[in-house]
Amino acid sequence: MARWLARLRAAYGAGPRHLLVLLLCFAVTGWVALRVSGEATWGRMLLWFVGAVIVHDLVLFPVYATADRALRGVLGVRTRPAGDGDTEPDPRRLALLNHVRVPALASALLFLVFLPGLLGWGADTYRAATAQERTPFLLRWLAVSGVLFLLSALLWLLRRARR
């Protein structure tokens, strides 16, 4: 038994528990794939499933990481590791950076989560479901974002004044 386990480990690269849970996982996925392949729209489902990963990993992440680096560049907060003669980041610039970052992230989060409502997608299904007309909430989102930026700016000023 011990020898068999050692051989499995050497060949497969992990223990039997690893193999077992993965096989279970792929069994469930395989069954679902088989069941869903009967749907006329299975291709779209697969596209959305894989597309979600691609959009997050190769679009959303690079976009927000790049935006953050650009913001740091504009505000003069160093991103590179400390080299010889570098000083710690200026705490005042750091505070400004974070007072822009926080409302920007919050606003982006709201945009992402409430996107269909902000852009007024699905007006017909909306009317059928609610017996009301759909009015895009884009202005509301702008208002919420504006309030968040304003609050952050006030807090920043308050902190600066205290120093």
Binding site: T29, V32, T41, W48, P116, G122, T125
Partner: peptide, 30 residues
């Protein structure tokens, strides 16, 4: 938010998607 832009049946996709996710979650946790 009543935006069926994906063009497939929501119930089917969300229910079976949940099982695929749950199976993978069990693996990840173990």
């Amino acid at each position: 938010q009543y935006a069926y832009v994906f063009g497939f049946d929501f119930y089917t996709a969300h229910y079976f998607g949940a099982w695929v996710f749950t199976a993978a979650l069990v693996v990840h946790v173990v």
